[in-house]
Computed example of a mutant assay.
Amino acid sequence: MKAEPQALSGGVKKRKKGKFVQYFKQFDLQLMVIPGLLFILVFNYIPMYGVLMSFQDYNIFEGMMKSEWVGLKHFSMFFNDPRFVEIMRNTIVLSLFKILICFPAPILLALMLNEIKNMAFKRTVQTVTYLPHFLSWVIVAGFAMSMLSTDNGSLNMALEKLNIIDEPINFLSKPEYFWTIIVTTNLWKTIGFNSIVFMAAIAGVSPQLYEAASLDGASRFKQMFLVTIPSIMPIIVIFMILEIGNLLNAGFEDLLLLGDAAILRSVSDVIDTYVYRVGIGSARYSYATAIGLFKAVISLGLLTLANYLARRSGNSLW
């Protein structure tokens, strides 16, 4: 009986020794991981020290160590801000629109491309839809402004030719059109590149499943619903979890470039643009940091909740 603890400790030592041996055998591979770990450490973990500003009246000349501690003062100011409800509404509504429209669109595009047999046409469509992703938001915003312009804007010209309108409409100065413009430009810019992951997942589906479904009399349309979609469902669930976790990330560059006009602020200001205006524009660093911390905590909670619900269906991140 006395020999058992020694045997157990010997087994643990052997396992630890085996892990170290395996680590050194893969030393060249481990070196490849180090740049990524350093990137995460420098840009994701070290800056977390700055969240202390949200509990201070930060003074840029005195630094964080000497600035006055004020507790939850800045959080309370944000919750009592007259624009709090408006900013949260814009953030949540825009995010929901992007999830409802821009999330399923790449899946549908991948499913349709998978059904195309003409490879030349398929590659052409892929190239055309991928290209907008590589354009900066400055260029995309320039395209949108040119297309929606009242002076020779293609959309106004088309509507006039079709006798739908009598005179040009300044779409970028009317709040009622803004959310539609933002969602449409995001869809155009992201649909092609986001479909790559789903195309790769579809390519990994076993051809034997399609053969079995075909022998059972399933058409190509039915095979899509009975074979393709269930096979890529784990990928869809994982990306959906990430989208829910990013619910408060309604966008920044697109909203700042297309919705900077004062007349659009009531529908274009979201958490990120508001933080930029008060933090950088007004130098209210502690207040902006408090808003950012609030957003991060809510996002973490949403991500955890979405992962918990997904785990019950058998698919989750952890």
Rank of each mutant, 00 (worst) to 15 (best):
K2Y: 14
P5K: 13
L8H: 15
L8C: 10
G11M: 15
G11F: 11
K17N: 09
Y23C: 13
K25E: 10
Q26E: 05
F27M: 04
F27D: 07
D28E: 02
Q30P: 07
I34S: 02
M48K: 10
Y49P: 01
V70A: 09
M77R: 14
D81V: 14
F84Q: 10
L96D: 01
L96P: 00
I99P: 01
C102G: 04
P106M: 03
L108F: 12
L111D: 01
N114Q: 00
M119K: 00
A120G: 13
R123Y: 04
R123D: 03
T124L: 00
V128H: 00
G142R: 11
T150Q: 08
D151E: 09
M157I: 13
A158M: 13
K161E: 13
E167K: 10
K174A: 13
E176F: 10
I181Q: 10
I182A: 06
L187V: 12
Q208I: 02
L215H: 01
F225H: 04
I229K: 06
P230I: 05
F239T: 14
N246W: 07
N249M: 04
L257W: 11
L264S: 02
L264G: 04
D272K: 11
Y285A: 06
T289Q: 09
V297E: 11
I298W: 08
L305S: 03
N307I: 12
A310E: 04
N315W: 09
